[in-house]
């Protein structure tokens, strides 16, 4: 029997491995594909492609993965000094997110992916959280995740998925300012949106944390179930 096919947006970065140094490479941390597989789906990676969004027709679900910042021009702001965007991913992922919302395809946004969902839904971002919040708990240091608890809206989709284990791992310096047409259903103790969703659609969920790190079967399982 064919498993649901889950497309995951991929990075493009200069990468080094074996004898190769700084080769332009499309890549995605293994944690994502393993999380999808363990949840019963079949992952394929989607390198940036700004041609069209027809690939969605062959997918049963979409994961918008983590990565660099979005270009603030996409939500009508000037770039601040610490904002580092990837034009190739932006050009591919915003149309994918909009088309997925239009087609009511199940979609999970992770970190940058949640921010892509928010911008696709007409929202805006804070470009550097320490300037806004006065602390660095959402990205304590390079390659160090900030672990904290999330407060979820009772009765929301994310509350039903997470149940009573509310510990999350974050690594981001931008955050949601205005969720657009999405509903904020999870917040950190400083009030920052940690989860957004669209209750009017089959499955549209964005989380600011990284559920792939522990292959969270609750979240990826909910996506794969919605994609069946």
């Amino acid at each position: 029997m064919r498993r649901p096919i889950i497309g995951i947006t991929a990075y493009v970065e200069p990468a080094s491995w074996g004898v190769w140094q700084d080769l332009p490479t499309t890549l995605l941390p293994h944690a994502y594909t393993e999380a999808v597989m363990l949840a019963g789906g079949r992952a394929v990676l989607l390198p940036p492609d700004d041609g069209d969004t027809d690939v969605l027709r062959t997918l049963d679900g979409l994961v918008l993965a983590g990565g660099a910042d979005l270009d603030p021009a996409l939500y009508g702001a000037e770039a601040e000094p610490l904002t580092v965007a990837r034009a190739d991913r932006d050009a591919a992922e915003l149309p994918l997110a909009r088309a997925a919302l239009k087609a009511d395809l199940p979609v999970l946004g992770v970190c940058r992916g949640m921010q892509v969902l928010v911008v696709a839904a007409g929202g805006t971002l804070h470009q550097h959280l320490p300037d806004v919040l006065g602390h660095e708990k959402h990205r304590p240091a390079p390659a160090v995740y900030g672990t904290h608890d999330v407060a979820l809206t009772a009765g929301s989709r994310i509350a039903g998925i997470m149940r009573d284990d509310l510990q999350i791992d974050c690594y981001h310096h931008q955050g949601v300012a205005d969720p657009g047409s999405l509903l904020v259903t999870g917040r950190a103790e400083d009030g920052l949106p940690e989860a957004v969703e669209d209750p009017g659609r089959r499955f549209v969920l964005g989380v600011q944390w990284h559920p792939e790190l522990n292959r969270d079967k609750r979240l990826f399982g909910a996506l794969v179930d919605a994609a069946r």
Partner: peptide, 11 residues
């Protein structure tokens, strides 16, 4: 880290 990956030349 461990990643799935391919040189962009193929893509």
């Amino acid at each position: 880290l461990i990643a799935g990956m391919l040189p962009m030349t193929y893509v």
